[in-house]
């Protein structure tokens, strides 16, 4: 058996290397170590961003290499912002975002509160609940299309069983009014466990002494919940909203697999629309402008939100 590292004495830096660093300040040394990472970040993050901003002011199409690239000013931006179809996709995204966040926070918090109570099989239930978020979104989308199938789908059967309706009389993903809810249900099913885990971490971070003190003051359970549990879990909840909000703003795979953006365009979220513009129609300049608008929107909203989150934490 070979000797483990800890048994061996540390070796001095070879003289040849040490000579190279001699005389360098701490700051210079720091730059040497951080430099490669900064270069990598510039290459894979900053340069593409700057390049995308430049492209957004041109008529460039990646599938037309022989065509002259013209500077078109803010034309792409004005066309996007005045396009009714794009506003419809924004509305669809806002609807999806609001309801998924609302339901996931509500159900996730409730599940965390239940799991936080000590009972037999607690760990097993936690594992079972978090299973959906471990699956691939493409797989989830695919098998939910079967669950929503009007003739053989378990979802339709369950609704039929509970309401007495004919299971084949409605189609979750073909109906204009039901399809937006179909994608909300699936996303909620998949990602509520994530919110639950964050809330659980929040609940477990509350010291028992606070509840004991409240008990001594003869505070009711209801009052304990609103004055201890909710304020102390709030920063965690806000963090969950931030993570899920950013994720769902760029939702693509699950919805494409479920509805393809249909029926019509009622579930065509912005990321699906953007992908169609960029990689099906190949309007590279136009889609670059579209991506920048979405980036600014998400970044702006997230920045405001993080400020609010910090304020809540400081209270």
């Amino acid at each position: 058996m070979s000797k483990i590292a800890i048994d061996r004495p540390a070796q001095a830096t070879p003289r040849r290397i040490a000579r190279g660093f001699r005389g360098l300040s701490d700051r210079a040394l720091a730059w040497i170590f951080v430099g490669p990472t900064i270069l990598l970040l510039l290459a894979v993050n900053i340069f593409p961003l700057i390049w995308t901003i430049w492209l957004s002011f041109t008529n460039f199409r990646v599938n037309r290499p022989n065509e002259e690239v013209k500077f078109v000013g803010v034309q792409n931006y004005s066309r996007i912002l005045s396009d009714d179809d794009i506003w419809l996709t924004m509305q669809a995204t806002a609807h999806f975002l609001f309801w998924t966040l609302f339901l996931q926070i509500l159900i996730g918090f409730w599940l965390a509160w239940l799991i936080n109570r000590k009972f037999k099989g607690n760990d097993l239930w936690t594992t079972v609940i978090v299973l959906p978020m471990m699956l691939s979104p493409a797989v989830v989308g695919n098998f939910w299309t079967f669950l929503y199938q009007p003739q053989i789908g378990l979802f339709n059967y369950a609704v039929g069983f509970l309401t007495g309706a004919d299971p084949s009389s409605f189609s979750m993903i073909a109906d204009v009014t039901l399809a937006p809810w179909a994608i909300i249900i699936v996303d909620t099913w998949m990602w509520t466990p994530f919110v639950m885990l964050i809330c659980l971490a929040g609940l477990r971070s509350i010291p028992d002494s606070l509840y004991e003190a409240a008990e001594c003051d003869r505070a009711s359970k209801w009052r304990q919940f609103w004055t201890i549990t909710v304020p102390l879990v709030l920063p965690f909840l806000m963090l969950a909203v931030l993570f899920r909000g950013i994720e769902n703003f760029k939702m693509f795979d699950l919805v494409v697999q479920l509805t393809g953006g249909g029926p019509g365009s009622v579930t065509e979220l912005t990321s699906i629309n953007l992908k169609r513009e960029a990689f099906e129609k190949w309007r590279t300049g136009y889609s670059s402008a579209y991506a920048i608008i979405l980036f600014v929107t998400v970044y702006g909203l997230a920045a405001i939100y993080v400020k609010a989150l910090n304020r809540v934490k400081q209270r």
């Binding site: 179809d85 073909a174 204009v176 249909g262 029926p263 019509g264 365009s265 009622v266």
Partner: peptide, 12 residues
């Protein structure tokens, strides 16, 4: 795709 699906399937 958009206009036809919107009318035929979505019924708009």
């Amino acid at each position: 795709q958009k206009h036809v699906h919107n009318y035929v399937v979505a019924g708009n």
